[in-house]
């Protein structure tokens, strides 16, 4: 994949090659390789402690890898002449000194990369922090305001690559929708958007491509739709006033039928169209006919469970809790 002799990338491809970071004998990131391409939102998914944040810090050169390398637009991060113009990053809301105003924080960052002062006002407006708020010390900021400030600093240099760690953390519904639209429009402009989240439902709505890691290792690098299609058990939710007759008809047609938790039958096998035809042929009234795809969350949970099992590192079954023996 990320071999030598590749054409120099104009935009901002993130290339991670055999990246490894060990703390003592524990590998936080373990021979991780993937590319993040421009023009789409790439989701970075993994449970807590999977190594997402460590990977991002390694890409930014904040941590030194034990082995392997990470490249942005064909260069090491530390060799970028104006890093903020190449990569905008949001690591955690706490990258800001609480005693400093939001405006001063951004002004400092702008100065550090020789960016014009007007960019501060532009990004403040873009993220919806008004001048009065921006003049206040960030100590009193809510999580959401801090997150907006973090995104403002990421956008300061109008970078080709955006790398955001849990950007929707602490945002309300409106803020989450705002980020989602912002990320999509940035990707549509041809930028590379790399976005980690543990909110799988959120990534499902935002990301077109997925990179999934568990325990520092790559589990999947795949388009979102393909991932869900491949890993989900397809099924169709069917309801009818004549539930028992519907079941018999479906089973006769070779469908595997099970009761859905919310009522109705979950039929696996025939497509929704086939079931519709079948109902018409048998003169059955249907009150619902819904093709159901598994959500990313369901697929992901199943996948992580099997990956854990495969590696045989899962803890053994818990000892059954014993009854207290100290009672007289």
């Amino acid at each position: 994949m990320a071999g030598a002799g590749r054409a120099p990338s104009v935009g901002g491809v993130i290339e991670v090659h055999a990246l490894t970071k060990r703390y003592g004998d524990r590998a936080a990131v373990d021979r991780l390789s993937f590319d993040v391409r421009p023009g789409r939102v790439t989701g970075f998914l993994g449970p807590n402690g999977a190594g997402k944040s460590t990977t991002m810090r390694l890409i930014l050169g904040l941590d030194t890898p034990t082995s392997g390398s990470a490249w942005v637009g064909g260069r090491l991060y530390r060799d970028l002449s104006a890093p903020l113009c190449a990569v905008g990053s949001l690591l955690d809301a706490k990258g800001v000194h609480g005693g400093r105003s939001a405006r001063a924080h951004l002004a400092g960052l702008a100065a550090s990369n020789g960016l014009p002062r007007r960019r501060v006002d532009e990004v403040l407006e873009l993220v919806g922090l008004d001048p009065a708020t921006a003049a206040r010390r960030t100590k009193g900021f809510s999580l959401g305001m801090g997150q907006r400030l973090g995104i403002a600093s990421a956008l300061l240099g109008d970078p080709e690559v955006l790398m955001l760690d849990e950007p929707v953390n602490g945002l309300d519904t409106e803020g989450i929708r705002w980020i989602r639209n912002l990320m999509r429009s940035l990707a549509a402009e041809g930028r590379t958007v790399f976005l980690s989240s543990h909110l799988m439902s959120e990534l499902e709505l935002t990301a077109e491509h997925l990179i999934i890691i568990g325990r520092g290792r790559l589990l999947a690098d795949t388009p979102m739709r393909e991932f869900i299609d491949r890993h989900s058990g397809q099924g169709t939710l069917v309801r009818s006033p004549e539930a028992e007759r519907l079941r018999a008809v479906l089973e006769d047609a070779g469908a595997r039928v099970s009761a859905d938790a919310r009522g109705g039958w979950l039929a696996r096998g025939p497509s929704a169209e086939a079931i519709g035809e079948l109902a018409r042929a048998h003169d059955l009234a249907l009150s619902e006919l819904t093709p159901r795809r598994s959500s990313l969350e369901e697929v992901y949970t199943a996948m992580v469970a099997s990956a854990t099992e495969y590696r045989g590192t899962a803890e053994g079954p818990q000892e059954p809790s014993r009854e207290r023996s100290d009672t007289p």
Partner: peptide
């Protein structure tokens, strides 16, 4: 972190 990300040298 923000400082070193902005000025990696």
């Amino acid at each position: 972190r923000s400082t070193v990300a902005a000025v990696p040298r």
